[in-house]
Design a protein around this nucleic acid. Structure first.
Lengths: 288, 288
DNA sequence: TAGTGATTGGAATTATTATTTCATATTGCC
DNA sequence: GGCAATATGAAATAATAATTCCAATCACTA
């Protein structure tokens, strides 16, 4: 009689995923407080892994004894063995993003062959994405999108290393039916092209050190015409930062002397699609 | 007298990295057993995070008291506070790559505003890099590099969405002093440009569904002239795959209707730099 | 080589923490 | 609405673990 501890038919979850599934499955028919601690456990697995029965119970708003009953209901013989599962989860979970990158980078530097080169570029791209994801200034993003969304024509300005980004922006803007002009140096007509821009237009300018002189000159000229500039560049000392109404600092990692473009690309696409969305929304309702 | 616990001038490391640095710095002048546990701690940080003083001491082959002395030497007031640092490390360490991506993607889909768009592109780029890193065929990479390294001139063929990659390849090849020709559709002279290619040259062709007809036509034409093609495309059904001597399948994730280019870019750069290296090496010694 | 100070091992002690117990409250059922 | 079964709270207890203490050992200096 009682809880029938003698023969324990039910399988005790040994790994976190099984445990999680078990909890979710029984969620409906659990008593209130037990359900409360169950929800807390799934929401704060780290706390379960490291806390003491008392501290966890307090955080979850239940009594320590409830926590133990919860563990027992799941088939564990106490809180301690339940906690093991949560600890295993942390042990077994893959290495951090940074560690993975370090490994990749080490492989790229240490290893030989073309796979190593490839890994190097993957690592550079990942690092860049990681960095920009942490450092991007949301306010600037909003400002830039607003500014560009109001423009009659968006001029896109970038040479050399940054040119691929410009061409993708132009492609995407075209797809979104947003009037744009890629300032290309094909026939030396850039100056004329630029001279058509007015303060009702806007510019996306991209340049990284060493700044292509043409980009700088054109950016200055267009700024002097009163056309607002959104710049993507790599430092506050960049001449582009001086000319720009809004500017983004993007630190691209490099490998074998070539900078990744992945972060710049992601930002460029976010700007482009952001403008597209803003224009659509703006047509219907102009709400923040 | 004593350990001078009254005024504690020395800073107690609060985060793992500082702690690690401190240990490494003092490593030389630590007593034998303390050094032993120090080494163990850096080698098995997870054990320190989860174990008890007794279990850790046993694993490291020292007495529990030594473990505590070690903690105290570092400025902690006992093993427990030292352990906190090791636990924090696990808590703060980023979730797995996949979990992080899921979170990012969820944010991008659920969240509103332009930050969400940005996150979406970051997630797409990360996913693509991850995928290609897993699936890239090394043998194909070697083949492709060999093939391209032997070419007199490398023709680069890509339109529309893929054009940015082509332009970056052309830029990089130029920087590496590798003769190349970007087949641009500026003045409609592509056919003529292509007609100059010989079997001693090679082509990098890039196209994703829906395949730009111009790219396909040009690839067919150039293949018919006996020029070997290295293709980057998205499926074995791609017409490019038919024409190519070597081809890579690259699955780019997309967001808001725009495909990431990050994986393609990384592969393109690996090919480019790989060719650069092979040419340099090949000049001196032709070894695998 | 003897002596001094630092280091170490091991057990005793203290603190912390998990678990149990029991009284009380709540829920579901007739 | 009353009764039984179940669930909950709070404190007592048992277990476990950290810390301290002291004797023994080791390394260094005179």
């Amino acid at each position: 009689m009682g809880v029938g501890g003698a023969t324990m038919d039910e399988r005790v979850p040994r790994d976190f995923e099984t445990l999680r599934a078990t909890i979710l499955e029984r969620r409906e028919n659990l008593p209130k407080r037990i359900a409360q601690i169950a929800a807390y456990a799934l929401d704060n697995p780290d706390d379960i892994a490291f806390g003491t029965a008392a501290s966890i119970a307090a955080s979850a708003g239940v009594q320590p004894s409830t926590l133990i009953r919860f563990a027992q209901q799941l088939g564990f013989d106490g809180f301690t063995s339940l906690q093991q599962v949560f600890r295993e989860r942390l042990r077994e979970r893959n290495s951090t993003y940074d560690e993975r990158l370090l490994a990749l980078r080490a492989k790229a530097e240490g290893g030989a062959g073309h796979r190593a080169i490839f890994d190097g570029f993957i690592a550079a791209a990942s690092t860049s994405l990681n960095d920009i994801s942490r450092t991007l200034d949301e306010a600037h993003l909003e400002q830039a999108v607003s500014l560009l969304a109001k423009a009659e024509t968006i001029y896109v300005l970038a040479k050399r290393r940054s040119y691929p980004v410009a061409s993708y922006i132009a492609y995407a803007l075209g797809k979104l039916n947003i009037r744009n002009q890629l300032v290309e140096s094909a026939a030396g007509l850039n100056a004329e092209m630029i001279s058509f821009a007015t303060p009702a237009d806007a510019v996306i300018a991209i340049s990284f050190s060493p700044y292509a002189p043409a980009t700088i000159d054109e950016a200055r000229a267009i700024r002097d015409q009163g056309v607002p500039i959104v710049a993507i560049t790599d430092s506050s000392f960049s001449p582009l930062a001086q000319f720009a109404r809004v500017w983004f600092e993007v630190a691209e990692a490099d490998f074998a002397g070539f900078r990744s473009l992945s972060a710049t690309m992601a930002l460029a696409m976010a700007l482009t699609v952001g403008v597209g969305e803003k224009r659509r929304d703006g047509g219907r309702r102009r709400k923040a």
